[in-house]
Design a protein around this nucleic acid. Sequence first.
DNA 1: GTCCTCCGTCCTCTCGCACAACAAATTCTG
DNA 2: CAGAATTTGTTGTGCGAGAGGACGGAGGAC
Lengths: 410, 410
Amino acid sequence: MTTRRRPGLGTNQELARRHNLGTVLRHVHGAGQISRAELTGLMGLNRSTIAALVNELEALGITERVLPVEGTPRQGAGRPSAGVRIAEQGPFVIAVDLGVDRAVVARIGLGGRVLQRAQAPVRSDGEAWQVGAAVAGLIRCVVEEVPDAAQLVGIGVSVPGLVRNSDGLIRLAPNLEWHDVSFGGIVLAALGLDVPVSIANDADLGALAEHVRGVAVGVDDLIYVSGNVGVGAGVITGGVRLEGAGGYAGEVGHLRFNPAGRECHCGNRGCWETEVGAHAIAEAIHCPTDKVAQLDEVLDGFGEPSPALRATGTALGHGLASIVNVFNPRQVVLGGYFRSLYALVGPEVEAGLANRALPAPLESVTLTLPGLGSDSSLLGAAEIALEPLFVDPVAALGTALVGVGTRLAG
Amino acid sequence: MTTRRRPGLGTNQELARRHNLGTVLRHVHGAGQISRAELTGLMGLNRSTIAALVNELEALGITERVLPVEGTPRQGAGRPSAGVRIAEQGPFVIAVDLGVDRAVVARIGLGGRVLQRAQAPVRSDGEAWQVGAAVAGLIRCVVEEVPDAAQLVGIGVSVPGLVRNSDGLIRLAPNLEWHDVSFGGIVLAALGLDVPVSIANDADLGALAEHVRGVAVGVDDLIYVSGNVGVGAGVITGGVRLEGAGGYAGEVGHLRFNPAGRECHCGNRGCWETEVGAHAIAEAIHCPTDKVAQLDEVLDGFGEPSPALRATGTALGHGLASIVNVFNPRQVVLGGYFRSLYALVGPEVEAGLANRALPAPLESVTLTLPGLGSDSSLLGAAEIALEPLFVDPVAALGTALVGVGTRLAG
DNA sequence: GTCCTCCGTCCTCTCGCACAACAAATTCTG
DNA sequence: CAGAATTTGTTGTGCGAGAGGACGGAGGAC
């Protein structure tokens, strides 16, 4: 992903340098390992400039040099290029994925490698501070083996709900029954730390992760539609996250679908969510209410799809058609329990989409499953926490925390 | 508006310079006239740097110096700052607004001033080459008084239809009954010229114009919903046009609205357009079919709204709710005949929106009328034609044409 | 009328990137 | 197998762009 600068500003020399340094790091982060020669080609800068930038990253302890021999097998003539990769004790973030029934916490290094992970069930009627304490405990678990030199850049949190982008306040998380919760503050207080916390919607983060390291690498216009009790979407357009004025963009679950339909918890009637939401599907397949949170597993254990389930697939396709018409994505990624649903009634979904979408946007769109499985949102949470590093590596390391392992152990 | 660079690239010194020069010009263009001191503050660059940039623009003949006396009345102490404004014989573009029943062509200077304009009726069953010839004739009209030194930067065209952004091909214009028309080539051939032609959807351009010089100046997340026989929307998010993979984003007219509703020309049933499109409204107010293209005027002559019209207003509000949920804009601008409709049944529209939108996105959104009246799309066409000038003024002037007046007169 | 504030201009300095030359490492070719 | 060809890393130099300070000018505040 790319970030956008505030428009109208001039480009300073210092700014250009920061941008170049961050962009080099972004490439290393995205590719895992990359040669200087490739960086030269990708960024359009001179060899010597790339060398200077890489050297600076090395001096900062972020990356390390790889001998040419270790790299990929040679192609073509010429001296092999030295590789750049994330340092062994490089910076890391903590990613938190708050699900409807469990919380997953992982320590994720720059470069996207999951270094440690832990998870625990979360009661859906839990108070925010209880969940925060549980998450803090999981965080303590995953920082046990942190090397002394490694720095914590920040914490990223994925939440199934509406998150205000200006301050990360969770305005509404229906499944957790939260209203206006400042979850970042709660977790930091429980940890006794002060690091940057970034919070965003789970579908938005799913889209981000699939764009950076999933099935949509190189695709600049994609939508991640997530079935997660509620239905939401994360949108990336032109390679940038679509946030909207407050950060609430992508609430496709409450698109009007059938005004004669069922009542929705939002107060309206016939929202798309009332047809393809978890409760609707559970009803269609006679799944007990207490297993709605594990709907994906229930669906995975399904054999031949029932007519009701086929109808749900068609409804999913019809709703996707509206989304495709409105956003004109190149790729639609079906996350959450839509993965399992698509495996069962894929043809119905495709047909529903093809029947209702306009020809022009339809011809360039493809429907796919996530490349990161159920970790999309978790990895997306890591991405937003890492983001400051790509905007200004030096500044981000300045606010980063060293020795987190010992600090949290005490 | 701002443009986005291809991500992943490095920032060159030359690139930074071009960007700064273009940004200065963008500010002058946006403000009409601006002082060097203001530029210094806005762009965050040094006085001497701004001076160098302004001098370069003057040397290029794009801007001219304004004595401090002529400027705005002084505020505060200190030496007054010299102003910068677009030169009298500065660059200009030709903007074309293809409507459903008429074509408007204007010569528009950098800075957004309409210098000359002309219009002619267009038969809705006209072949593309006929319309192209008519437009070429109008263009000849508006370049009659062009000063010799002034340069034509390009031609911008607003089309009520789906336009492919990669090459400007008009994929589909329902009201003109066009399929896959290369209108840019047709007009250039009729003129015997070779200048850059930019083509885009009318609602997209309406949004752009309202963002740059209309009611949404300073608003970075807005939607321009245009009623223009068909219903479409232009979206600006984060200050950037939302285009989608092919450029077709914003087709809100075919959002599913009422699956039990009327058949739509797109082949589906109950699209939003079948409830708030021109034909639906015409039917509701018993307006004859041949006056549908002038629906805005018909509505303007209306007194007390009928119940059917009130219901249409509610349907408009309900559809806007879906749009607000999905895009989370700060402002929704109602263009085309929705202007007239809103004047009649504004309360119904507002109520429909408030009843169906989610609280979070609803609280920050406002419904407004266009600040540019019916010229939104025309001025937006001028903006996309001017865009290259803000990306790289020197290069854009390099491809610009001098002496267009005499060349087209002969 | 004097002081203060702010602005434009000029000059110098610094910094970042490009470029060229050379050395090194590898493949290709005869 | 040896030399040519190719590509890359390294180093030093040059250029260009923005920053910063000194100076003078233009107006407001007292």
